[in-house]
Amino acid sequence: MTVLIDPPQWPGPRGLMWSHLVSDHSLDELHSFAGLLGVPGRAFDRDHYDVPETVHALAVSLGAQAVSSRELLHRLIAAGLRHRKRR
């Protein structure tokens, strides 16, 4: 059971860079961890939370594993938790 976070490299609101927060175990684990971080539910998007760069260090200090974006996606898919946008 692991919560993963990629580097804050995605431009987003308020001029901040953003990361993706996922679980390679379950969405319940992900939602619980996001709650510990104080991340609002509106930041959840199908299979991940978008979190600002200001949360990255806290997430790691609370046990999230910092990984590359490629590794995060690979592990999300391998866990069967990837939910793509419908066309």
Rank of each mutant, 00 (worst) to 15 (best):
F44L: 00
D50G: 14
I77C: 02
R87C: 10
V22S: 02
G12W: 11
L58M: 11
A57C: 04
I5P: 15
H20W: 03
A78T: 03
G15T: 09
V67W: 12
T2Q: 07
R42N: 02
W18G: 03
F33P: 04
G15W: 05
F44D: 00
E71W: 08
L76W: 06
D50E: 09
H56F: 07
A79D: 00
S69G: 15
L36G: 07
F44Q: 01
D45L: 09
V39C: 09
W18H: 14
D6M: 01
Q65A: 15
H74M: 00
W18A: 04
P7I: 01
S61Q: 07
L21T: 13
R84H: 10
A59D: 11
A59I: 10
L21K: 10
H48R: 07
A64P: 15
R82L: 00
L16P: 14
I5F: 12
L76Y: 06
P11A: 04
R42M: 01
G41E: 00
V67D: 13
R46D: 02
R75F: 05
A79I: 03
V51A: 13
Q65S: 14
R84W: 13
H74T: 03
L72N: 11
R82A: 02
P7W: 00
Q9M: 07
V3H: 06
A78F: 05
R42F: 02
V55C: 15
D28E: 13
A64S: 15
V39G: 10
T54E: 04
T54M: 01
L76Q: 05
L27N: 14
L76P: 13
S69H: 13
V3L: 02
F44I: 00
E29K: 09
G80W: 07
R82D: 00
L72Q: 08
F44T: 01
A79E: 03
G63I: 06
L21W: 13
A64M: 10
E53S: 12
D47T: 13
V51D: 08
V55L: 11
V60A: 13
D6H: 12
R46W: 02
L36F: 04
H48S: 06
A79F: 04
Q65G: 08
L27A: 10
P8K: 00
A57S: 08
H48M: 01
A78Y: 07
G38Y: 01
H83A: 09
Y49R: 04
T54S: 11
L81M: 05
R84G: 14
P52H: 07
R82Y: 09
L72G: 07
W18E: 00
W10S: 10
S26I: 06
R46L: 03
L72A: 08
L81P: 14
R75N: 02
D47A: 08
G38M: 01
